[in-house]
Amino acid sequence: MKLFKYMVVGFMFGFGMWKLEAISTFRIIEMFHFQSFHMYGIIMSGVIIGIIITQLFKKGKVKTIQGITHPFNDKSHEWWRYILGGTIFGMGWALTGVCSGMMFVLMGSGYTVFAIFIGSAMLGTFAYGYFRKVLPH
């Protein structure tokens, strides 16, 4: 039961992303062709509200359920990983029109072929873990 609340959060997120059409590859193609504000609106409004929420937690105005100030970790300054990894991720995002959250939403909505997509993504993750030491970070 302790974990059930996370399922509720995920449910709202998945439901919302479906209704916002963020799971549609056609919306992703539209975004990368700069033909509509829709996807940028979703991301930008999410970030703006996210900044307010994050600041409330950071300043300790809102405490977590454990009664403490949420510990935020600063991201490391390994620039190559963000540039190279980000570009590779972006290519995958545009190729299938699906990012790592949306693949679960699509899988659940009945497109069972996404089991193969998730399997491939696990393989990609494994490949990164295996070759991590030789990759520039």
Binding site: C99, G124, F126
Partner: peptide
């Protein structure tokens, strides 16, 4: 499907995060 999945999985971990 397979290529896109691989790039997503590899790139997300390499970059240390995805869209979310």
């Amino acid at each position: 499907i397979v290529g896109g999945g691989f790039l997503i999985g590899f790139g997300a971990r390499y970059a240390g995060g995805c869209t979310s």
